[in-house]
Amino acid sequence: MSGTDATIQGQGAARWLPAVFVLPLGIVLALGFLWPLFDGTVNSFHPFTRAGIDRSTWTLENYAKLADSFYAGILWRTIRVSLIVTLLTAALAYPVALYIVGLSPRGQAFYLLIYMTPWLVNVVVKAFGWSLLLSANGVINQSLKALGIIETSMRLMLNETGIVIGLTHGHFIFVLLPLWAALSGLDPNLRWAAANLGARGWDIFRRVTLPLTLPALMAGLIINFTMNMTAFATPALLGGARARVVSFLAYEVNLVELNWPLGSAMAVAMLAISLLLIWLSLRTASFGSRRVRPEGASP
């Protein structure tokens, strides 16, 4: 084997040649992705007048407006609902992940596929399915009435409850998958070692399993939270105008009020928050991978 020789592969190509391959996509994305985002950002710094966007003046008033109590209230609801969904998902996904990891590879694949189905099914179809269950004369209310537990229908959708249920269902996999990966990557010896030292079930979980999977859990939760914050169709269909979230409000501002500068300001704010959160989740995950592998741990 001529090892060092083999590392220097052919490169007789002209300098401009790579551009032929990467530029088409680069141009399409620059035109259809970067430019619109840039354009929208510029719009958010112009005032909105009756005649439309006043491109001659620059202002921060659109951002200032986001702090108004009306908008701030909706932002607060969005954060609250998203956080509830995220915490609920954490509480539900952890036991599921713990159980699945103990199964045979086939069993693991089977259940992972089941938990993945909501992600693979269209978001409006999911919302429709939930409305069959949650609406005033949906399956749940019908059944409870038939059993005599309640007399009048409970309000399970077109409010925050509907959003929470829909989002928990829709974004479950984004917590489950990293958690499952972290748990199955755990060195089983660690748990035996803990048991050997006299730790009991709950102690092992609290002192060994949980701390070691915490980074993965956190990373998954942050992603989950980000997706909840920016979800549109699920809160629109299961929450509606009674439980407006930021994205629904942004829809109204942009397409009903046609106040694009304000709408853009909302978009910029959402983008900034998501990028910040994604960065945070990446940092958490990489911090975790450093901690989960102490020196000399098995690969």
């Binding site: 020789d5 083999a6 490169q11 007789g12």
Partner: peptide, 18 residues
């Protein structure tokens, strides 16, 4: 021996390397 440049030379003759 490995790394002596023989493969580079061959690839240059073939036109893979300039």
């Amino acid at each position: 021996p490995s790394g002596c440049g023989k493969t580079t030379l061959l690839r240059t003759i073939a036109g893979i390397l300039q």
